[in-house]
Write a protein that binds this DNA or RNA. Sequence first.
RNA 1: GGCUCCAUGGUCAAGUGGUUAAGACACCGCCCUUUCACGGCGGUAACACGGGUUCAAAUCCCGUUGGAGUCACCA
Length: 489
Amino acid sequence: MSKVRTRFAPSPTGRMHVGNLRTALYAYLIARHAGGDFILRIEDTDQERKLEGAEQIIYNTLDKAGLHHDEGPDKDGGVGPYIQSERQAQGIYLEYAKKLIEKGEAYYCFCDQERLDTLKVKSGDVTISHYDKHCLQLSPEEVQAKLDAGVPYVIRQNNPTEGTTSFCDEIYGEITVDNLELDDMILIKSDGYPTYNFANVVDDHLMGITHVVRGNEYLSSTPKYNRLYDAFGWEKPVYIHCPLITDEDHQKLSKRKGHSSFEDLLEQGFLPETIVNFVALLGWSPGGEQEIFSLKELEEIFDYTHMSKTPAVFDMKKIAWMNGEYIKAMDFDRFKDLAMPYVTETIHREMNFDKILSMVKTRIELFTEIPGHIDFFEAVAEYDVSMYKHKKMKTTPETSWKVLKEILPVIEAQDNFENDALYEMLVAFAKEHEYKNGYVMWPVRTAVSGKQMTPGGATELMELLGKEESIKRIQDAIAKLEAETPCQD
RNA sequence: GGCUCCAUGGUCAAGUGGUUAAGACACCGCCCUUUCACGGCGGUAACACGGGUUCAAAUCCCGUUGGAGUCACCA
């Protein structure tokens, strides 16, 4: 058995779609698991769609995800170049296309767009077209004459119109199609560049790729690729087609819903390791009950024969949960590094940020939630006095007003503003007045925060706020209650 | 529309002829608790349908329905 070699072959057209990322991940995992090579190849044969900087995005994404390649444009492994435009400049594709022409497996086509348009037919709500082999009838002399005259041409694959073609996919099993379905697809475009279909086959062979890992959308065109392998007399690779990833409505992932690309997800506050972990489990399962896996663990246990055949919905709720798990398990220093930008953009005064962060750590799933949890430290936002009403605590704006007035002098007399001391003080106060703890804590916490929920309890917040600010906020709350509560005694 | 593929709870999924049909997310309830969260415990919820084959079918076969992919000088 030869060494396993897989490749990831993205087009530099923008951010990396999560479906693409998963394909990369699986290709990487299959190679690593088998002790093989993972190759990066850039497929930039579409000069129109090529995007400035997109290549860098590919490198960044792969790097952040931890998917390090063994060979690629920046790491020569002897079968380069690894960028298709460079390979095309060397004439590789044209050379192989001509070999096919010699064998009668391909032919020149001079049809212009106008003629091609006449071949289009409407079927249902889509227009489809199937080339009619028109140029196959041209004699060698006619072809040469047109070539000499400089008529633009493409090179097409010459597929049979009878019989069937089969291939075996590792996930989906044997698939057979009627040769009549096989269009004479274009191998070399009129601009001289190869199409994906052709470049892919030539490069996979030349680069010694043993396992072709790609999206399900290529399943139906694979027979055509196999005919190419046969025409060349090359050994066919193992095919592993991955099921699709869809949104909640079972449609292709869309930019609007925010989960289209790796970078979008990063911007939304997801950790790279969360994304990798989550995406690994979309379409594959290790079988056990563990759900949190490091990339290292995945490399060890990944077994592509357990991949599923059904498309998977990208569940934002579950990936958010998973991100929360990663955050909770993260060591504090790293959490602080990642979280501080969100803190400093929200709070502009000196505070004990470590304490604030440790309170926030168990309460968030996304880093972007941090400002919403801590903004009240900066200033109490406008809030409704109905917030003082709590059924379980048996509080209302009126009782809160009363309690706050009663406790204000006690707090003013309090010198030790550490959490434990404050807590003791409030509990003692409650006991003395025969109040339930919550009956006192709820109004105090609401007064100092103006929020329904906070990352800590009343006394924790007061400790962080400090005596002066705490008292000021309680005074403000009393004034607010007096002004806005309809009935006071 | 042709072709191809697919079909276990709302979602991700285990399951490969005999199981009380796992587990996770979400949802609900209870407990913990100075709110919320965390944590703990429990609950609702699935084999698309119809025929076969078999002593026995979520598992095998056929059909129906439903869904997806594809049908470019895009990849």
